[in-house]
Every structure is written in C-alpha cells, then in structure tokens.
C-alpha cells in the first residue's frame, strides 16, 4: 500500500491559501467597481478585505506544523531556490499574507482601529505611529495585491504540477484549475459571509455581483477540467493510468458525485437559474437567501474536495506502480 507523505493538513492549507487569494481578488475587484462615480459594492469590498488574511494565516500555520521540524521553517527564508516551487511559493505566500493584512487594516472601521490602539500602552510611541488611516490607499494596495493573490492561487497548483514523478499532477492545467477554483471559492465564501451577516443583510445587487463572479470562475474551472480529462485520456499510458484513479478507480465517486456534481454543477445550476431571468428576460433579480447559502456552501465544499482528490490521488499515481493497481 502506498504511504501518503502529504496528508489532510496539506489539503486544508491548499484550500485555505486559495480561499484567501480568492477573497482578496473578489474584494479588490469590488473595490474598483463604480456606478455613477460612487463605489458600487463597498460592503463587499470591506467584508472581503477583512476576511482575506485569516484563512491564509491559519493555512500557513498548518503548513509549518506539518513540517518534520516546524521550528526550522525559517530556513525557507534563508535560502532561495528558484527551481523549487515550494521555495518560490514560501516567499510569495509571505508577501501575500503581508499585503492582505495591510489591506484589511486599510479597511478597518475607524472605531475598531481606535479600539485596537487603546489596548496598546501609551508609552509604546513607535507602535502608535502606525495609527494612521490607510483608506485613501485602498486602491493602490489592492493593485499591489492582485499579482500576489493570482500568484498564490496559481502556486498551489504549480506545487503539484511541477512534480514530474506524478503523472496525475504533471500537466500544465493543474495550476489554472487550482487558480479558478480558488477564485470561485473566494467569491462563494464572500457570498456566504454576507448572507450569514445578520446585522447588515445582503442586498440584491451584492448577491448578483457575487453570483455573477462565481459563475464566471466556475465556468472557467470547467473549461480547464474537461481538457484535463480529455487530454489525459489522449496522453501517454502513465497519464492515462493515473486518470483511472478518478475514472473507475478509488477516487471516482468523490470526484464525479461530490466534486463535479455537488461541488460544481449543482451550485452552477442554482446560480445560473438565479441569474438567467434577469440576464436574459430583463426581469428583476431576486437573489433567494437560502439558495445563495446552499450554492456558496457547495462551492466551498467542492473547492476543498478538489484539493483533497488531487493531493491524495496524485501521490498514488506514479510511473512504476500503476500497473499493479489495475
């Protein structure tokens, strides 16, 4: 039996890292959109900005805990190896986490910021100099963060895709698949958070924006997954045998039923059926709260499962063991 070197912690990290990338991207995008010179989705932008740092911070902590020697993680930053996706990724992740925290700070409501600094002793003058309003720089910070968020979204896929020994991963499509899945998860998480926020109920134009965003990303994701499957089938034997893992092998049900079905096509169906009447027939968009809740939860589950399937199935796939699996 094949031993798994990378387990659930890595799956969770890949998911959380992508989630933050998606949250930041959606929030930054919302920050840029305007209607008649006024910000169109300020609450979406604020919610996304305040949520974005936490998943990646937790994910990075899990990543460090997963190391054989967690306290040696600093060695990642005393070396730079451009050939190692993990080395590039560590720097990318650190920069991205930094930007998300600065961006969240720029969106922190004035009252919260003052409350925060009240807890800092008054004698710590240098710390109190940080008590500045970054609100005018929100767009600049978002622009700086976009490449990092896309980078983190792609990197989680490159980490796996760059491993030539695992035919299940070693395709140029995994990076894009993970990126679009991350962006879609981010939009869905934002939708879920706003629907659950009872103090300021989500407004229909916000629901519409997030649902539209999610539809775009899910469709893009589908456009990557289908070629991944088709091209894999037309590829060399090792890749074909690796794909057997999700086409008849042990990961078939979780891939087709839970990921493709419940995690991708069902939420896509819900969101399209919500949006289509307003898009095609000019009817008013209603945005049912419960449907949004279900769709966004399913998208998040799908995003998690995609990483689960790839991390586990990918480690089973190899050039020399596949023959024995059949």
């Amino acid at each position: 039996m094949h031993e798994f070197n990378w387990g659930l912690l890595i799956v969770v990290y890949l998911f959380l890292g992508g989630l933050s990338a998606g949250l930041f991207f959606a929030a930054g995008l919302a920050n840029y959109l305007e209607v008649d010179g006024q910000p169109a989705y300020p609450r979406v932008a604020a919610m996304g900005a305040l949520l974005a740092p936490w998943p990646v911070a937790i994910g990075s902590a899990l990543l460090i805990l997963d190391l054989g020697n967690w306290y040696r993680f600093y060695k990642l930053f005393t070396h730079f190896r451009w050939e190692s996706p993990m080395s590039i990724g560590s720097y990318l992740l650190m920069m991205f986490t930094g930007v998300t925290f600065v961006y969240a700070y720029a969106w922190l409501p004035e009252a919260w910021r003052q409350q925060l600094f009240q807890k800092v002793p008054a004698t710590w003058k240098q710390v109190h100099r940080l008590n500045v309003d970054l609100a005018p720089y929100r767009k600049v910070i978002a622009m700086v963060g976009f490449p990092f968020s896309i980078g983190v979204g792609i990197y989680t896929g490159v980490l796996l895709g760059a491993v030539s020994a695992r035919p299940f991963w070693n395709t140029n499509l995994v990076a894009q698949m993970f990126l679009f899945s991350a962006l879609s998860s981010g939009a869905a998480a934002l939708l879920l958070a706003m629907v659950l926020d009872k103090r300021s109920p989500i407004q229909t134009h916000e629901t519409k924006f997030l649902i539209t965003l999610d539809i775009v990303f899910i469709v893009l994701e589908l456009f990557i997954i289908l070629p991944y499957l088709i091209h894999g089938q037309l590829s060399v034997l090792a890749v074909k045998q690796a794909l057997w893992l999700i086409l008849g092998g042990p990961y078939t049900v979780v891939f087709w039923v839970f990921f493709m079905g419940l995690g991708l096509l069902v939420p896509l169906g819900i969101e399209v059926s919500e949006l289509a009447p307003s898009l095609l027939k000019g009817k008013a968009f209603h945005g049912d709260r419960r449907l949004a809740l279900v769709a966004s939860t399913l998208v998040l589950m799908g995003g998690f499962l995609l990483r689960y399937i790839f991390v586990y199935a990918g480690q089973v796939s190899s050039f020399h063991k596949m023959g024995m699996l059949h």
Partner: peptide, 12 residues
C-alpha cells in the same frame, strides 16, 4: 532539512 517531504513526493 525542514521535513516538508516534497522530495519524497517528487521521487519517481
């Protein structure tokens, strides 16, 4: 070695 096990995953 920090024990990330990337090498184990990458060894064919």
């Amino acid at each position: 070695c920090i024990g990330c096990r990337y090498c184990m995953v990458a060894c064919p």
